[in-house]
Design a protein around this nucleic acid. Sequence first.
RNA 1: GGCAUCGUGGCCGAGUGGCUAGGCACAGCUCUGCAAAAGCUUGUACAGCGGUUCGAAUCCGCUCGAUGCCUCCA
Length: 493
Amino acid sequence: MAKYQEQQLRIYNSLSGKKEKFIPINEGHVGMYVCGPTVYSNVHLGNCRTFMSFDMIFRYLKHLDYKVRYVRNITDAGHLEDDADEGEDKIAKKARLEQIEPMEVVQRYTVDFHNILQKFNFLPPSIEPTATGHIIEQIEIIKEILENGYAYEINGSVYFDVVKFNETHEYGKLSGRKLEDMISNTRELTAQDEKRNPQDFALWKKAEPQHIMRWPSPWGDGFPGWHLECTAMSTKYLGETFDIHGGGMDLKFPHHECEIAQSEASHGNSPVKYWMHANMLTMNGKKMAKSTGNNILPDEIFSGENDILSKPFAPSVVRFFMMQAHYTSILDLSNEALLASEKGYHRLMDAIVLIDGLTSSKTSSIDLPAWKQKCYDAMNDDFNTPVLIAVLFEGVKFINQIKEDKAQVSETDLKILSDTMNQFVFDVLGLESTTQLNASSDKLGGVVALLIQLRNEARANKDFATSDKIRDELADMGIQLMDGKEGTTFSIT
RNA sequence: GGCAUCGUGGCCGAGUGGCUAGGCACAGCUCUGCAAAAGCUUGUACAGCGGUUCGAAUCCGCUCGAUGCCUCCA
């Protein structure tokens, strides 16, 4: 029996504003599309949080035995500097500034993106398509929208006619905006603007002669609008209507609103059953922005080379920190918060290392099956990772109590404890252990075991100067000794 | 200015009509040669002001503040 048949997942749907039962279109299968990065600079930490949220969601869906097709695109063309559709393409601008080919920009920052995600232990998506690889599909959609009368061509560019669309459809239903309000809040069109209305958006932009990113089309050489690629690629790989579409909260309007409009205007179907939006990451209470200097790159956190944090933090610690907040909440990054998470993370990992050494009893003094279900209940409630982590810390307490003989578990229950801890910590949350050394399998572990032995001999001889020297100097190196009833163990901090 | 989300104990962060979230920090106890680790115990918090209710941190209204998007300005 597949796990999804036993667990009822509920998802907060941005479109309805409510938590809804998750029922996929095709039983046992999930199609999920997430708007990926525009690769014109190093991926920033806020982007990582969004993608990490959907990585966790991907992992849990897989854990529930769904067959998931997860599509996350790379935007390598068409994302303009401002949404007035008058700015320069972000990648073309970067290429011009650095005097390199646009595809060099794309390559450089795609590699960076993948490197960072790998450090954060992301699962690769099923398909990672690029905008430039789907120009033909985008042109086909534009043709359909033109045929259906929801777009117009002018001077080699094609614009989506939002006003016309809104006469028969509801533009703004995702973001809660009303077209009338938007129009009344907008100034007069400037004389040179080609658009009929300021709300219209570009499907295809004519390439000026100096433009290096250009493709032929029925309307002349040009390049596609930013919103179109996601419609083209999600339709191609997931169908006209699919289960989950995700992205950052900041993409809700206009990007996702435009995607809905494009789908409905081309093939007539609403594209997505469950819209999911991950919330923003702030730092020290303020939004992260390069312009204000309130910004940090993932590698700067890992290396400690920054002016904001007191020490380096491992990718898994940052991941744990992010998982301690719900994906729909704003999360504030600070030195204190990271330090606190790091300690909690080590407590969790240290407990997991102990599981294999635990001994079972005839009966259990704690209810492990009920505890296991609490883990699922947390995740079934719109992927509530902070509550899951709280339940996992109950597991940590159980592990330590069993080790100290203050609780007993049967062999069956011990397996539940072990399997559940491992599955949720590593498979679902995607954390990695940094304390995997142990005395039997590792040279360093053997060296530490020898030092522990020497220290215990010194203690037996009441030579506490020597024993404390060993303990304290190992601690300075990041190896902490822990004296327990069963002898001394250690962990790497 | 508009739309949206949100304001929880020293810090981070769940919950959302009546019942302990959790982590970090702090204090006491147990253990220890002393520590650390671990276990046990303790914390009566929900921006402010009104309203609904037997009962609100949780619902409604207003005010203040934060964040994102849009707009405006530069």
